[in-house]
Write a protein that binds this DNA or RNA. Sequence first.
DNA 1: TGTACATCAGTGAACGCGCGTTCACTGATGTAC
DNA 2: TGTACATCAGTGAACGCGCGTTCACTGATGTAC
Lengths: 216, 216
Amino acid sequence: MSGIPDSVQVNPQGRKPVISREDIIAAALKLLGPNRSVSTLSLREVAREAGIAPNSIYRHFRDLDELAVALIDLAGQSLRQIIGEARQRATSEESVVQGCTDAFMEQLRADDRLLHILLREGTVGSDAFKKAVERQLNFFEDELRLDLMRLARIKKTGLYEPALTAKAITRLVFAMGATALDLPKEKYAELTGQIVLMVRMIITGTQTMALSQKTK
Amino acid sequence: MSGIPDSVQVNPQGRKPVISREDIIAAALKLLGPNRSVSTLSLREVAREAGIAPNSIYRHFRDLDELAVALIDLAGQSLRQIIGEARQRATSEESVVQGCTDAFMEQLRADDRLLHILLREGTVGSDAFKKAVERQLNFFEDELRLDLMRLARIKKTGLYEPALTAKAITRLVFAMGATALDLPKEKYAELTGQIVLMVRMIITGTQTMALSQKTK
DNA sequence: TGTACATCAGTGAACGCGCGTTCACTGATGTAC
DNA sequence: TGTACATCAGTGAACGCGCGTTCACTGATGTAC
């Protein structure tokens, strides 16, 4: 994590910090919900939630934007770890798609605030914020691309434009995931089924396109 | 368009309105841009841009939320018309995908503010606002579904889950379109190519899946 | 060990600002007769 | 046609509020000697 480090680590003089960056991030997360987006958080509000004076936030973050970026980076890391674990567990292509989608939706269902942010706010906010979201999505796409190529090697199926395939899957799943946030939980199972089918469409498509390209 | 109608239409008494709902909507649109989203507009700001007193807005809209919903409805109508025209012009499936994507990207390139809103802000804002976006997307999906079914009939190809296919395409294209808003215009051609390929993946996928279902 | 000192995390008060909303109003328009 | 009247779109002033940011400060901690 970049940004202003806790001063105690850099310069061991002075008063020890009694609150940490993490405490402030946790306070911000508490305030977020289906009807509160990161860009509507105010500095004073976060400070209030964290139980500190408004201006104390400046000791840890240049401004709220820097806090927002920290939230996004955290969210990306968290999600990639979860999906990475789901990937390890799966073996066949079918179970990878199903397994990862299940893990994704499970995290959604558990009201993971970090994931909500990542899904919901990629298109609004400051440039720094949008870039941070884009960066995390790119990480994600890249891991997915490697995984698709690995599976294609094992199954000896072709793979047309792996990078583009990974991008399509990622963007589609995130877009569908975002709609889930406003859905009642009972609909999640149905939505999961839809997402799995959509992803299969894309994968079947690339395989078929690779095939017809080869036979040309 | 629902909402409070211009009173002159309902009750022909009193002073004639010198500004209209449309004037206020136009003022709001002027204020929007890559770094201004609908939810950050203030009532006073819109009034200033429209050249009226802040409280005059209340004569036309209950609150800014109602204005935002009006913007979304307009945006949806506008986009559906553009895509509808592109659809009319095309005949083969390949040219429909290419033609509609071109029309879509052309509109983006022309900095159509309405389209920006639709792409960018589907996941933030008030419930009413999010519902309005969802409603427009559903209209769009439905028209696409009918078109896919029409093409499948002509070409005698199968079509696996037309509604789901339409949804996948719509959501993916909108998600990719949203990323375009932060891209320099030189990259638009490349992005258009990517989108066309992605849509082909999905269509190829559904056709292949329909085929393998039939032969079972 | 004791003392003087430097550091700096967190504070409390204050600032000016733009906000949404309210209120009583003005005066142009259309209606009734 | 002329006159009295009702309607209501738009106004201007005022309100209380929460905001981001600044400033000089306090006092706990660690360091030097």
